[in-house]
Amino acid sequence: MIRFEKVSFHHPNGQMALNDVNLEISPGEITAIVGENGAGKTTLVRHINGLLKPSEGEVSVLGMNTRKVSIAKLSKSVGIVFQNPDHQLFSDTVSNEILFGLTNFHFGETASKERLEWALEQFDLKDYRERSPMMLSGGEKKRLCIACILAWEPQIIILDEPTVGQDYFQKERIREMLLEQRDAGKIVIIVSHDIEFLWPLQPKLIAMSSGSIIAHGGASEILSRDDIIQRSKLITPQLLELWKKVPLDGPPASDVKEAAERISNLSVWV
């Protein structure tokens, strides 16, 4: 469980970046944080692994008060993939990059080797194991960052803009991986603008604007509200928009397959 109680955060220059944030996130859920550039999304997630401490209020992560435990201790439980992979990669080879976390968290030689192979396989990085991370494309670097985090199996996984630079096939892979993590009882948090990527995951949504949470709830409910769409600078997912535009029964379909089946079965169909 992650809990924010009356959390505010001011930058050293006095600028308010989070304003009275109250929040609970439970295991076995995917939560997506949306909002315009500069709304406070990244500031919020950096409070979860203790990189930032609240100016006021408390953040508790898996029962630990982030003010009272070290970032090193929190990192074991909270894996965060930054928006810009260049801020996170520093080893000489792809393999060593993945091994870095495993070694630091004392996985032991056999277990480390096993997790390394798993991560290389999962993220299509096997051919690059001896290559320098700096020589990878933007999309491959991002995948490597995700692989590094998942290798040590943190309880909480936070991904900041995971789909940037990924082609459709890789996006599908990331989506499947997130669902697996959710089903394994992990807390999964995604910061993303990519609404077509998020919609089929049907996440809990947190919409932010100017450092405040303006809505928190189911994806359908929140994205149906025009005021939220406007304030968060989003656009409506295409399937939801279709359900709003034509009289189709029931709640909007979450993916193309379901939509096609339900539209084909309509009683008014020729």
């Binding site: 082609d167 459709y168 295409q238 096609a260």
Partner: peptide
């Protein structure tokens, strides 16, 4: 074309 991000709505049309 399977590996490129054909718009959701176009994929729905194709599925129908």
């Amino acid at each position: 074309l399977r590996n490129i991000g054909i718009p959701t709505i176009t994929r729905l049309y194709q599925a129908l």
